[in-house]
Design a protein around this nucleic acid. Structure first.
Lengths: 125, 125
DNA sequence: ACCTTACTACGATGGGTATCGTACGAAGCG
DNA sequence: CGCTTCGTACGATACCCATCGTAGTAAGGT
C-alpha cells in the first residue's frame, strides 16, 4: 500500500507527510490483538492510555533501536490502534479510543486492565 | 523422550497420554493475545464459548490439515486459553474460563463480544 | 547557511510459525 | 486379532516479523 516509489519531481512537501490510517471499517480484531500481543507495543499502548493524550515517539525510552521503534509504531497505526500525525519534527501518537470503543466495546479497557493486573502480579518490572 | 525406534516392551500406556498445561502463574497476557490473534484459533475459541462445554478436536471443521489443527490446539493450550484431556480416542478441549477470568477480568468476554460484533459487521462468514 | 533533532526507508538477518504430507501410536469395535 | 478412528511426531517449506545498521529527509533553531 505504500510501496510507491514517489516521483522525485515537485513533491508538494506537505502532502508527503501524510500518514495512512485504516478506516474504522478496515480495522480487524485479529490485527488489533496481534498488535497488542507484542510486549513493546503493549507497553506503548499502556503509556498512551495513562497520559490520555498524544505523545511523541521519542518520549518513549524503549530498549530497541530507533528503526525498530518506528516499526512498532507503524504496526500499531496500521492495525488501527493508534493515530499518528506530524507536528513539526515530532510525530505524535495517540490511542484511537473512540473508534476502538465503538468497534469493540470494552476490549481496550479490559486489555489495559489485564496488563496492569499482570504487571502487579509480576512485580511491575 | 520417545525418539527411540520404539521398543516393543512395557510402555506404561496411561502415563504417555498426559498433556502439559501452564499453571495460572505462568499464563502471560501477551501469549493469550497472540493465541487469539489467529483467525482459526479465534474461531475455535468462539465455538468453545458458545457450547460452554468440552468439544473433541474432530468436531471442528477447519479448512486446514489435521496436523495444522493439532498445532493450533497446542498453541491455545500452551498459552493457557484452553484445557485438553484425552477421553478414549478423542481429545477434548474446553475453555479455561475461570482461570482467565480470575487473571484477566473481562478480557475473554470482551474479545468474544468483539469477535461477534465483527462477524456481524462483516456479514458473519 | 548550518547543525541538531526526529523520524523514515531500505536491505539484511535470524527466529518464529502456519502449513503440509507421511508415518506412526493409542483406544475402541468388530 | 485386524480394522477404523482420532490424534501425534517429524521433517520440510515458505512466509512473517522483530531486529539492526546505514543512509537519508524534513522541520526548526541559532
Amino acid at each position: 500500500m505504500n510501496a510507491m516509489k514517489w516521483s522525485p519531481a515537485v513533491t508538494a512537501a506537505t502532502s508527503t507527510r501524510e500518514l495512512a490510517h485504516p478506516s474504522c471499517a478496515e480495522i480487524r480484531l485479529e490485527g488489533v490483538l496481534h498488535a497488542l500481543s507484542d510486549p513493546l507495543r503493549l507497553r506503548i499502548v499502556r503509556e498512551l492510555a495513562v497520559v490520555d493524550d498524544e505523545l511523541s515517539c521519542s518520549h518513549f525510552e524503549l530498549p530497541v533501536s530507533k528503526s525498530t521503534t518506528t516499526h512498532h509504531f507503524r504496526v500499531l497505526r496500521e492495525s488501527g490502534v493508534i493515530e499518528q500525525n506530524y507536528r513539526g519534527t515530532a510525530k505524535m501518537s495517540g490511542l484511537r479510543r473512540e473508534d476502538l470503543d465503538r468497534l469493540f466495546p470494552g476490549l481496550l479497557d479490559s486489555v489495559l486492565g489485564a496488563a496492569t493486573a499482570q504487571a502487579a502480579r509480576l512485580g511491575d518490572n
